[in-house]
Computed example of a mutant assay.
Amino acid sequence: METKPTEISSSKMFGGYNKRYKHFSPTLGCSMTFHIYFPPSPSSPSHKFPVLYWLSGLTCTDENFITKSGAQRSASSFGIALVAPDTSPRGLNVEGEADSWDFGVGAGFYLNATQEKWKNWRMYDYVVKELPALLAENFPQLNTSKASISGHSMGGHGALTIYLKNLDKYKSVSAFAPIVNPINCPWGQKAFTNYLGENKADWEVYDATCLVSKFNNIPASILIDQGEDDKFLKDQLLPGKFQEACKTHNVPLLLRLQPGYDHSYYFIATFIDDHISHHAQALNL
């Protein structure tokens, strides 16, 4: 099986290229796709682009961010490569994997499942270990040691938890409408029960609000944008809980509540330039 990535599409945008790749993932036990936006080639052939990983939300694939966010404009001007992986394993035909939109296919929650039935759902290891190694090995124009991470909703949860657990691997983090306290919301409780079992202590290692208490050496402020008209704000996202935890533990957080905005990519497209700029600063661009 071909673990080396094969290019399956390429489209020019803002002087650079959106390229989509397919490869077999030993971590997940299936074929996976991911996108890379390569900025315009610099004059120096030895130059390497820093990387911003984008983790998408429930029901999404590796295509949503690339086609809807407009992030390429800022990424092109700053010289940042965008890497957008898929949100779960696909094609495994596990019973029940597609029964609901908020669990299973398209809903990997960026964790390593411990329950036997869902043993292939290891998106945490895929994003943190396999994908960076694959990029370093196959794309010499990328500098994977200079990386930041961002995401939306379930992907915002993924970005925050992965960043907090791997401060040595990422220079900065940001999120749009993230699920910051999954142990206390219906989406998180459903996913964690199925993927991780009934022991609540096992859930806390994938909850950003719980993780914040363990850190006091965060190199850059955490940036979060949250739409005030987001229908999931009060029941699922709970940004106030994360804000309280950050305040208690002196973790630098900029939480911006945006009046009138919802949970959609219209919201993301409106503020994505601020997020790219936030990461460019941390990546010393």
Rank of each mutant, 00 (worst) to 15 (best):
G188K: 04
P186G: 08
G188L: 02
I149M: 12
V173H: 08
K169C: 11
P182D: 07
T161G: 01
S145V: 15
F192A: 06
M154T: 09
K171V: 09
Q189I: 11
W187T: 03
A191L: 02
P140D: 13
E137F: 00
T161I: 12
T193H: 05
E204T: 14
Y163Q: 03
G197D: 01
E137T: 09
W203H: 08
G155K: 08
N184Q: 12
K165S: 11
N199Y: 03
G158E: 02
H157A: 13
N138Q: 05
H152T: 14
H152E: 12
V180G: 08
S172G: 11
V180I: 07
Y195C: 01
N138K: 03
G155S: 07
S150N: 15
G188N: 05
Y195H: 04
L167K: 04
E137C: 07
W187E: 01
G155I: 05
K146M: 15
S174K: 09
S153K: 10
K171Y: 13
K169M: 13
L160A: 00
G151S: 14
W203I: 04
G155R: 06
N166E: 04
A191S: 09
N138H: 13
E204D: 05
V205P: 01
V180M: 07
M154W: 07
N166C: 07
L142N: 10
V180W: 03
W203Y: 04
F192V: 01
G188H: 04
Y163D: 00
S153C: 12
Y195I: 02
K165H: 01
H152A: 13
P186E: 05
N143P: 11
N143H: 14
K165M: 08
A177H: 06
N181C: 14
F192G: 04
G197K: 01
A191C: 11
K171I: 03
N199I: 07
E198N: 08
A159M: 03
N199D: 15
I183M: 09
N166V: 07
